[in-house]
Computed example of a mutant assay.
Amino acid sequence: MRLAVYTGASLGSNPLFAEAARAFATALARRDVGIVFGGGHVGLMGVVADAALAAGGEVVGVMPQSLVDDETAHPGLTELRIVRTMHERKAEMAALADGFVALPGGLGTLEEIFEAWTWLQLGVHAKPVGFLDVAGYWQPLLDAVATMSAAGLVPPEHRNAAVVAQDADELLARFAAWEPPRRRHRTTGLAPTGPATTGPAPTGPATTDPAPRM
């Protein structure tokens, strides 16, 4: 069992962010839940990796060669997978993960978790998507999604499919009981079922990854 953890490459201004990231990663490791993340040693990403490794957990990083060259890769990971592009990085992380969690982060974190949430809506995968809402960090964003849903642009079942939790125990319990919503559209050639490639998407029917059991 692995979770893709998206979070910031900076520590942020609130010390609760690092405290929560450390506690979350430690709790995952103690439950034998592996972590897939962006591979960096800085910011909240580094806090997550360091805490999980210190607790004996598996931590798999996925990073483009350009960032490795910039010396931002964490040196002590269980495994570091080097890819060519940011698109390959996201596809590889999605293929490796059984679920997706956003801790406090910036634009990259936002883009990554929303892609996972969108893929769930489209039926590209059937894996849970969640937010660790540290000190109410994600609440304004979730309120905006609620506004979109009220305006008829986000189906309620897809808005409600995202898990919002305060700590690892709550998140893992809700992930274990989670069921995927009805998918909105039929998709083809989009499922992240294997290592990333730069070739064209396949033309056959999309496969839907099963929901994980935790």
Rank of each mutant, 00 (worst) to 15 (best):
A176F: 09
G136T: 07
R184T: 15
A161H: 08
D133M: 05
A191G: 15
N160E: 15
R213I: 00
A211C: 14
N160Q: 14
P140S: 03
A135R: 06
A177N: 13
A144S: 10
T208Q: 14
V164W: 02
T197A: 12
R174L: 14
P200V: 04
A150H: 10
A168D: 09
P155Y: 11
W138I: 06
L132Y: 01
A206V: 00
P202V: 08
T203P: 05
F131N: 01
R184V: 15
W178N: 11
A135V: 00
A173F: 12
F131H: 00
P192R: 11
V145R: 08
T147C: 03
A151Y: 02
D169F: 13
L153E: 07
A135W: 03
D133C: 03
Q139M: 11
V145E: 04
T193N: 07
P181E: 05
V145Q: 01
A201L: 12
M214E: 02
D143M: 05
A144D: 01
P192E: 08
A206Y: 02
A144Q: 07
V164F: 01
A206D: 15
V134A: 13
E170V: 03
A150N: 12
R213G: 08
E170F: 10
A196R: 11
P205G: 11
P202M: 03
P192V: 09
